[in-house]
Design a protein around this nucleic acid. Structure first.
Ligand SMILES: [Zn+2]
Ligand SMILES: [Zn+2]
Length: 199
DNA sequence: TCCAACGTTAGC
DNA sequence: GCTAACGTTGGA
């Protein structure tokens, strides 16, 4: 285990939860932090979180090289276009829709217990791009639902969720409504600021 | 429609 | 083998 942030977070979360919730009142502002309309200064976003490294996960942004291929150079801020994913992504899903797509066919002679792979459940997991703002985030907010339910949810902090992964690569090429759904899926629309914001 | 949980995959 | 995280499903 490289750096089980979870453990820490959980530990802290558990702990802090008891007391942390008790006080609070100002730190939450970090939640909104980045995600600003303009992702230029990448330094601005991390600060707020860092300020509160309580449960923040000091992850060393170990991006799964899988996606670190070499396209990021330009995709850093190009993700705005959902089309980006299809362009570079892995051929696996590009055309046939993942390598499990065909497996769906009942006629496939895979056999009942073909232990080849997951019959069809989960196509193929993508990995974070490592270049988008969320990916660059080194610490989890520790307050979003994902952070709070990490144990059962098995999800990364919403603030750290890769923008690419946020987009559910549905079978559709690029539906207008889909986009929104995707964004909304995470509690954000576009250049929004995620939760909090005021109150 | 959104959120939470589960199962499974992927990296270390 | 373990942990982290993505994808899918179910429930509210
Ligand atoms: Zn979080
Ligand atoms: Zn990313």
């Amino acid at each position: 285990m490289p750096n089980m942030e979870t453990t820490e977070i959980i530990k802290q979360t558990k702990d802090s939860k008891s007391c942390q919730e008790t006080h609070h009142s100002h730190e939450q502002s970090q939640l909104s932090t980045s995600l600003s309309p303009l992702p230029h200064s990448s330094a601005a976003e991390v600060e707020p979180i860092l300020a509160e490294d309580r449960n923040a996960a000091p992850e060393q942004d170990s991006v799964p090289k899988t996606s670190t291929l070499s396209f990021d150079s330009s995709s850093v801020f190009s993700y705005s276009s959902e089309s980006t994913r299809s362009s570079l992504s892995f051929d696996t899903e590009s055309g046939t829709e993942a390598g499990y797509g065909e497996s769906l066919s009942p006629s496939v002679p895979l056999g009942p217990g073909s232990g080849d792979v997951p019959r069809r459940k989960e196509r193929k997991k993508r990995s974070r791009c490592g270049t988008c703002e969320p990916c660059l985030r080194k610490i989890s907010c520790g307050r979003c639902s994902c952070c709070l339910n990490r144990r059962t949810g098995h999800q990364i902090c919403k603030l750290r969720k890769c923008v690419q992964l946020r987009k559910r690569r549905s079978h559709l090429p690029a539906s207008p409504g889909a986009k929104e759904s995707e964004c909304r899926h995470f509690g954000m629309t576009d250049g929004d600021t995620l939760v909090t914001q005021d109150s």
